[in-house]
Structure formats: structure tokens, C-alpha cells
Nucleic acid binder design. Structure first.
Lengths: 128, 128, 128, 128
DNA sequence: GTGGTCTAGACCACG
DNA sequence: GTGGTCTAGACCACT
């Protein structure tokens, strides 16, 4: 089940993208699985169909899902789409953004790392 | 020295905010230190003065810096301007964004955590 | 100057994407060059601004251009974004599609190759 | 043997059209040869019969195949059903699509041409 | 003025 | 019924 929050700083379509990415990474959505249709997800989230379609389009461009016209949207078999440099660049950027966001919140580094580690392990390790 | 890059997905004013936050958290900017004026920083970064002013405004609202009329802008003494709920909310949001961004990059959880841990420790622990 | 044709089987936004890709590959658009604004290109092509924005968004996702909010859209410095496998896969797919489209048109293979070669050389070699 | 793949950007009916075109151009399907019935091909590919029927309809319109009532579908004797203008238009469009798709993949023009040349020669020259 | 997001609604292509 | 494209128009964020 995907949820969107208006309080989140990310736009709706990006919240959808991130949520589905996490489900795929965690194995909750496996290759071949069918995603909810654009219209049904839009209704469930009470957003416009175009907003869901935009999220699905980006996930398709990333090679994570594929849509079969008239049939629906499905999780793709995994493939390495990005170069190592690009993957590295994106990780570095994500780290930079994260550090910039939490640097002055007053949490201990160990607490932050523990928090993140728990979430990541739960998602990715659980999958293996 | 702060730098802004066009390749970054964050808007310029946010890059400035994050960079100053990190400098403060890491001790590179200590309480009482003087920051460059809005105008001079804008000139140095070759961005609009409004952009720098916007960044300084948010940092002021967070209680990280304060401007003394006619004198300049200075790093504030450490204090908690944000409520615990707000701090928690921001951390949770940052974790969500980060996980959504790196979930499908294909890195091992340990590698991601190690990477982040190194950056955080370098910044925050070094400071204490 | 970019043009779109209603007779083309590609949707408008894809025609725009392909045209800009070719201009970038051919060096007609160099890194740092400014592209026409979303609104002005939309007006010139007499299409909706969303259509142009969609094309620009995909080119941004491909790393070919970057947009600076409030300033405009610019050609990015080149970087290798895709893995070798993905580049190879895309070339193979393009070749398959092309061959499927021209196989029974009755042209001689040499003529087809010569035609394509001329276009490619004009674009890519001219650039070096 | 024809195969369809979900990873391909073309709709299924177009994949079928292209595959049969290539087989005819390459001589693997010669004039007079019998094609599988709409139903049997649909069953073999596990696609809707409408999809195969649509592909056969377009191939018939192009004069490449013909159905003899109650007997089956057969490869037509070679003839030019398309006007020179239409053939030229299709070639030009195919070239445009191809160039747009590969322009920014980072391959050398010679490599692209060599690749395409090999496939075309293998198909068409071998046939003569 | 620039790009980004979202909505509403229409029409088409596909299966 | 499914996704894809396009339009029109609004509102927001950024500079």
C-alpha cells in the first residue's frame, strides 16, 4: 500500500516513485508483479491520473517497471542500467543532501547512522 | 568557502543553506564567527542577492545565525530552536528521501551505511 | 531551429527530444548553451507548454541538459550516464527497429547504409 | 519462429509485423510459403488473436502477404505496393528515428554504420 | 520571467 | 479497460 503526504517536501509524483523504488528494492514487489493501474492508484491516493502516470513514466525510464499497453504495469527483471560513475555520483549526491538536512538537528551521529541502518537493513537485507 | 553547482538537484538557496549548516555542525564555523554579507557572498557565488538573502533568512529562522544591524551576520550560540517533534519529523523525512534515492542503485546496505557514517563522523565527531 | 511534423509517427515530445539530441551530438548545441525557454519553444512550435516541458524533463533525466529554476535550460557537460550493457542494448534495439522498418521497402542495402552513413557522419564527425 | 518481448518499446503487433518483414526480406519466408494461422500464431505467442490479426492486416495492406479464403495466409510474390513517395517517406522517417535514438549514446559513427551494415547485409544480400 | 507541479478533461493506441 | 499523449489553465518555487 502506497501513501502520500502533503506535509512531505517532495512532490506527490516523487513520493510515489520513491515508495515504489523501496518496495522493489525490498522485494515486496518482485519482477513480474503487477502494479495497480494508473487510474486505480490515482483514485486510491485521490490524485490526478496524470500524476500517477508521471511517476510510472519515470520508473519506466529507470528500467524498474515496464508497461504493456492495454494490459497494465509490471515490475521489470533487474538490470544494471547506470554506469558505475553515475551510480557513485547519485550516492554521493544523496549523502550530501542527507547530511545537509540533518547536520544541525542536534542528533548524535551514531543515532542517525543507527536509524538509517535499521531502515536500510530492514529493506535490503530482508530481501536476500 | 562555499560553492554551488548547477548539476545539483537542489535549488541554489538550499545548497547555500546546507553548506552553512554543515560548516556550523562541523565546527568550521563557530559561534560568534562572522559570515560574509549577503552582497559579498552573492557576488562570490555569482548568484542573485535575493537567493543568498533567502538562505540567510531560513538559517536565521532556524536559530543558526543572527544578523546584528549595521554590523553583519554571525553564527549564533548553539541552542535548540526547533521542537523535538519538528526535529524528529525532519530526520524521518531526510531518511525517507535518502532511502528512496539510493534504494535501487544496487549498493549493499553496509556500503551505504559505511559511506554515510564516514561523512557524518568526519563532520560531527571531529567537532566534539 | 526545431520543427515538429504531424505526419511523423513519433509523438511531438519525442520529436523534440530527438531533435535536441541530434543537435547536441552534432555540436550545434554545446555544453553551457542556453535552450529556448519552455514557453517560447512551445509558442514557436504552437504546442502546449507541458509538451515542451515533458521533452525537457526527459532530456534532463538523461543528463543531457540541466534546468536552473528561474533562469532557463542549458546543455550539460557530457558525462557517461549509462552502463556499457545499456548502451549496447539501446543500439541493438534501435538497429532492430530500423531494420524492421526498412526491410521490405525495396531499397538496396548499400543505399540504405550510404544514406544513414551520410547523416551520421554529417552530424557526428563534423563535430570533432 | 517469431518471438515477442515485453522489454521492447514497440507494441506487440508491430514486433510481429517487423519480424515477418525481416523474414520475408531475408528469404526465410519465400513467396508462396504458408504462414501460421492467426489463431495458432496467437496461441504460440500467447497474445490476443486481435493482435495477430492486426499485424496480418497491415502486412496484407503492404502487399507482403495475402489470405486465401478457407486455405490460409501466404507470402505474396514480390511487388511494389507502396508508391515511391511513400517508400522514401518511410526510409526518411526510419533514418530520423534511428539517428535520434543513437545520437547521444556515445558510439562512433563508423561503429554504428558497421553494426547496421552487418545486419542488413546478412539479411538482404544473403538473400540474393 | 523562468521552470515545476498538479488538475481536469479529452482523445488515441493497444490488447 | 489499459496506458500514452496532448491541451488548457492554474498555482507555486526560484532567481
Amino acid at each position: 500500500m502506497i501513501t502520500v503526504t502533503t506535509g512531505d517536501s517532495r512532490p506527490i509524483f516523487r513520493q510515489i516513485i520513491d515508495a515504489i523504488r523501496v518496495k522493489i528494492a525490498g522485494g515486496e514487489l518482485a519482477p513480474g508483479d503487477k502494479l495497480p493501474s494508473v487510474r486505480s492508484l490515482a483514485m486510491q491516493l485521490t490524485v490526478n491520473t496524470n500524476t500517477v502516470a508521471k511517476a510510472y513514466a519515470e520508473l519506466t525510464a529507470e528500467g524498474l517497471i515496464e508497461s504493456r499497453a492495454g494490459v497494465g504495469v509490471f515490475v521489470s527483471p533487474p538490470r544494471r542500467r547506470l554506469s558505475d560513475e553515475e551510480r557513485e555520483r547519485r550516492l554521493a549526491e544523496a549523502v550530501d543532501h542527507f547530511v545537509g538536512a540533518v547536520a544541525t538537528l542536534g542528533f548524535e551521529p551514531e543515532d542517525i547512522v543507527a536509524r538509517l541502518s535499521a531502515v536500510l537493513d530492514d529493506l535490503l537485507v530482508h530481501h536476500r
